[in-house]
Structure formats: C-alpha cells, structure tokens
C-alpha cells in the first residue's frame, strides 16, 4: 500500500510544434520524455521503503544499474490495456511501424514479448509497483558497500509480494514465482534499450539531455 501511494503521477511528452514531422522529431520527443522520467524515477526511489536509509553511494549504485528496468516496467504496464503500441506517455504511443522508422524495431519486439507475458498473467497494479521496487533492489550493481542492507530491502519486498499473493491470488500458488521469473526478460530488455539509446547518441542526430547521457554512461 505504501508503494501504491508513492506511485508517481503521469508525465506527458512535449513535442516541439515547430519541428518538421520526421524520425528525428519522434526520437527527440522520446529522449526528452525519458530525461524527465529519470528525474521522476530518482525521486520515486527515495520513497521506496528502506532506500533512503542506504548510503548515498549505494543509492547511486542501485539507480545506475536499475533505472532502465524501472522505466521499461512502467512503459510495459501503461501499454497493457492497448492492443498494439508502446505507451511511452498517453500522448506518445509508438506503434510497430513508427518504431521501425526510428530504428527501434528490435527493442519494440522485445518489449512486446514482455507485455504479452504480463498480459497473460493479468498483472495488477499492486504487483507492478512491487516488481518495480524489486527491480531497483535486485539490480546487481557491482559497487555496493552495504550488501546486508540491500539484502534486507530485497527480503522486505519479497515478503510484501508473498503476502499480497497469499491474500489476493489464492487460486494460483505459483503466481509469485511466475512474476519473479519475468525479471530476467526485463533485464535483457533493459540492456537492449541501453544499447539502442547509445546508438542514438552515437548517431548524433538527436539532442540528448545531460541526465539521460549521464545515466547511459553509468551503465557502461
């Protein structure tokens, strides 16, 4: 219930109305949205129980490893009710063809696989917020100082998920396992997304904001 309360408000894409309609405009709008979403994710992380008690170094380590997983899980959850397309924001829904044109078709297909999985499971909001916090706590950062504190955080979240499933999804005793088994695909998808956006940086056609660049570099 705490995670539900601290769930951030929606953010919207802010396309430049004067820019010509082309692939660069779509990518520019997308990268600007991701940059603003990163600020939202960093502020959200502070409200995950136990996170703010970690050292600043460990907070940075977790976020630098997990930010793209958190971002993608949000994207996937928003996209669940839609037939097709990735709901980056309510006013920025990218369908297959648009993803192909901007060079993100491969990423689109992987994210779609994740969406299909969660759609079959009928992932609900409580599970979504818990998995998102788990992705943060389970980020396997190489630079963790206090391993025990991170383990406690993971245990706390695992317990919350187990409690929830025991009370709300009695009919399927394997449900929490099914949910946890989606996390490898989430990581794989996030890694692919990082590669895709690094390619966008290398191509140099799209202006990138500083925080987005900093987080892309931190994943190296």
């Amino acid at each position: 219930s705490h995670l539900l309360l601290v769930e951030p408000d929606k953010i919207y894409a802010m396309a430049d109305p004067t820019a010509p309609e082309n692939d660069v405009k779509v990518l520019t709008t997308l990268c600007d949205l991701v940059d603003r979403e990163l600020v939202v994710i960093i502020n959200w992380a502070k409200h995950v129980p136990g996170f703010s008690a970690l050292s600043l170094g460990d907070q940075m380590g977790l976020l630098q490893s997990a930010w793209m997983e958190v971002l993608i899980l949000g994207l996937v959850f928003r996209s669940l009710p839609y037939e097709e397309g990735l709901v980056y924001a309510d006013n920025l829904v990218l369908e297959r063809e648009q993803c192909r044109v901007v060079g993100l078709l491969d990423l689109y297909c992987t994210i779609l696989q994740l969406i299909t999985k969660y759609r079959k499971l009928q992932l609900d909001k409580e599970e979504f917020v818990t998995l998102k916090a788990m992705a943060l706590a389970n980020s396997d950062s190489m630079s963790i100082e206090n391993v025990e504190a991170i383990q406690n955080l993971q245990d706390l979240l695992h317990e919350a998920l187990q409690d929830y499933e025991t009370n709300q999804h009695l009919a399927d005793p394997h449900r929490s396992g099914k949910l946890l088994m989606t996390l490898p695909l989430l990581r794989q998808t996030a890694n692919k997304a990082i590669q895709s956006f690094r390619r966008v940086v290398t191509e140099g056609k799209v202006p990138m904001h500083k925080l987005f660049l900093e987080m892309l570099e931190a994943k190296a």
Partner: peptide, 15 residues
C-alpha cells in the same frame, strides 16, 4: 561521484 553529478545532486535534494 564527480562523473555522476546530476544523479548525486538529485539524490541529495530533499524536495
């Protein structure tokens, strides 16, 4: 931490 100064600043920002 120098290299990741925006993240560092946002985490320290209490607002």
């Amino acid at each position: 931490k120098e290299k990741h100064k925006i993240l560092h600043r946002l985490l320290q920002d209490s607002t």
